[in-house]
Design a protein around this nucleic acid. Sequence first.
RNA 1: UGACCUAUGGUGUAAUGGUAACACACCAGUUUUUGGUUCUGGUUUUCUAGGUUCGAGUCCUGGUAGGUCAACCA
Length: 556
Amino acid sequence: MEELKPKSLNFLEEIVQEDIASGKYPKGILTRFPPEPNGYLHIGHAKSICLNFGLAQRFGGATNLRFDDTNPVTEETEYVESIKKDVSWLGFTWAEELYTSDYFEDLYQFAEKLITLSFAYVDDSSAAEIAAQKGTPTTPGTHSPFRNRSVEENLALFRDMRAGKYADGEKVLRAKIDMAHPNMHMRDPLMYRIRHVKHHRSGDKWCIYPMYDFAHGQSDSIEEITHSICTLEFDVHRPLYDWFLDKLGIFPSHQYEFARLNLSHTVMSKRKLLQLVNEKVVNGWDDPRMPTISGLRRRGFTPASIRNFCERIGVAKRDNLIDLSLLEFCIREDLNKSADRVMAVLDPIKLVITNYPADKTEDLQIENNPEAEVITKRSVPFSNELYIEREDFMIDPPKKFFRLGVGLQVRLKGAYIVTCTDFKTDSAGNVTEVHAEYIPESKSGQDTSGINVKGTIHWVSVAHAVEAEVRNFDRLLIVEDASELGDDFLKFINPESLQIIPKVYVEPGLKSASVGQPLQFIRKGYYSLDLDSSSDKLVFNRTVTLKDTWAKEKAK
RNA sequence: UGACCUAUGGUGUAAUGGUAACACACCAGUUUUUGGUUCUGGUUUUCUAGGUUCGAGUCCUGGUAGGUCAACCA
């Protein structure tokens, strides 16, 4: 489908467009999403996923899903499964499911080749010695005493490393580049280390494992990835990425860097997320307060809203801090179109309609979603005793209070207009009951009363109400920017990030709600049924509130 | 006392040497049987000093500020 006015391209799209125009990649472009299976995906990964898959979709290419599993110590199959689930859920289909570990033999051969070309050597130095040899960013490094071993000796030693003749840490394979290079990554970086550890896929087949720098570029090259995009901190790795591909003389994949996503009022680093889980600040990786894909899914976010968000934040090379309100806008925008409206009273007070027959029940037909293309209705029981929101009645209502107070009128959503006549209090002066009279000819849809009211409030019939638990979620942190907080970020957890309301009343039709189904509790927010629900206990998660301009008005 | 990356409203992102725009946020009004939604309008912008040019947010130089890099992590 052709857009009328071509949207401006982001810098990555421009690069791809130029490469295609110049005929650089006659077979089309190929991107890849390369997570390490050592944790759960978060919204930052979603940006990368949308970028990689989006680039390929837009320019007629394809995208591989590659698990970058070169460190057997941290990686597990459990994470592979969750990552696949999350990428699929976001709505993307990968061309091939691949694993860096599947290239271990190729990578080994690449290493032997570099040894043969005198571009690599086996080093017996300890980790501390190697660190010392590296120098500092402002002072050049020094040569390892093992740097000038012969090709034959290096080859023999490296084969012995593979054969398991050495213990962990005893030897490493290093690239022979330049110990005085201004880029630290070019000062004879490690290519292989010894790890006598079972790998989640290759098992015990290997005891030497390639480092990221010796695996990533070559994996890209093996797959003939044309555009390998990653985050900014890998910028300094690019010379090394290019050096290996050049010396090996293999397919020249190219790396491009973009600024990672930072979201306000939350944390994104794997370490901090892990900390939240381990210290039980949240209830697991899929806690709805987490910025993980699984958390957002459980919270009630839709894949489309997240894709939309990633589209709107754009992509560039400068550091950024995206305001959470943009994410909230995106989910509201989506849910406003798709969520059925239902009534739930979270903080109930009884409203008695004194002139409505006590033994009567009406089944009212109420619109599910005024925004829908095809309007459908549902049946909601109405009777003389209703629950309404406590905040919808005031003893001394101020001027612009369009709700109940003695003498005031409101419409009960989908039902009648009522006039408040009285109220009861307990000994402490708390309102316990509100009384009103309904206007029979004001029935919704057939109103002949001629009365206009400013306010409409939601309600649930006492006799028909279904009990439910509601979990209201809010921002995880009370500070916008957690980047400089370090471990102190735990001191800034929003104490109201989770508020459980154990007993609310919802309309009876909600007994048949399904997990994840988007709903709008009228005037309250968007909710979805949590997977903790059972047939005799409903639990609803608040995805996001509605915009509340009344709250702002009240604050004045 | 290094190398590299970056700098546009409050937050993001465009403008590809030719009128600084779009979204979110915020404010005001409109619509509304949700104080939701819709629609309309408004407030607020090119880090700094030079240079090139008829013309610079864009190119060049210096400065300033922020970020990245010295894991047998990725």
